[in-house]
Write a protein that binds this DNA or RNA. Structure first.
Length: 221
DNA sequence: AACCAGGAGAGAG
DNA sequence: CTCTCTCATGGT
């Protein structure tokens, strides 16, 4: 049944969609901000908020950390949860400044950086890994709702509520978190999102899905 | 008009 | 560690 390897999955997705070259952002810090703003929200909504911050010249750690929180709330409203996300962005930007900016973060090893990020209010496992992978070029695989849903429907996971760390360990067990696999981590997560946005949402569209023959429960999703 | 979207914190068991 | 509540805007 579950004879599907993660490497195979990546290969099939790459053949269908081609390299995605994520994350859609101009700077590493913009990736960090976007990672927070897209929490439990569509990228379309998060992107509007990012655009507002860009117009206001707030997409640097220094500018963001010294901005009035109330004004910040107004700018990021389209992303939803604007009160807590404004607080989270303040926490994050202060952290980045404190650590010597993006360069200061990049200089640190993954093993010490990940716990530090998880210690920041508003940065959970997915947001931390997104920042590590796409903003700081550290090989830390990103698990999200799509990843769990897809791996479940492919018969790799027992359910969709398997814990974050177990899914992460599963993938990183097959593709080790080393520098040489950085590109594969980036592409795999991006491709899973691309696939799921189109074919593997809560209500699936299996008929046009390129993976429909691999999906063990395609008739009762 | 419910339902959903690239989560995370806080509290309880 | 797992379960449940809350947080909010915008599209279908």
């Amino acid at each position: 049944m579950a004879g599907l390897s993660i490497a195979q999955l990546l290969q099939v997705l790459l053949e269908h969609f081609g390299p995605q070259n994520w994350w859609p952002a101009e700077t590493p810090f913009e990736v960090c901000v976007g990672a927070v703003l897209t929490q439990n929200t569509t990228w379309e909504n998060a992107s509007r908020a990012v655009g507002n911050l860009k117009k206001a010249n707030l997409l640097t750690p220094e500018a963001l950390s010294s901005t009035d929180e109330g004004e910040l709330q107004n700018l990021i409203k389209p992303a939803g949860f604007f009160r807590q996300k404004a607080r989270y962005l303040k926490e994050l930007s202060r952290f980045v400044v404190r650590e010597g900016g993006v360069e200061g973060l990049k200089a640190q090893p993954l093993k010490v950086l990940r716990p530090k990020l998880l210690n920041v209010k508003g940065i959970g496992p997915e947001t931390a890994d997104s920042i590590l992978l796409y903003a700081l070029d550290k090989p830390s695989f990103v698990v999200d709702k799509y990843t769990k849903r897809l791996l479940y429907r492919l018969g790799v996971l027992e359910g969709e509520s398997v814990s974050y760390n177990r899914v992460k360990a599963l993938v990183e067990g097959e593709i080790p978190p080393t520098e040489e696999h950085l590109k594969e981590y980036k592409e795999l997560h991006a491709l899973i999102v691309e696939l799921c946005k189109r074919y593997c949402k809560t209500r699936p569209n299996c008929r046009e899905c390129p993976l429909r023959e691999l999906c063990y429960n395609q008739h009762n999703p």
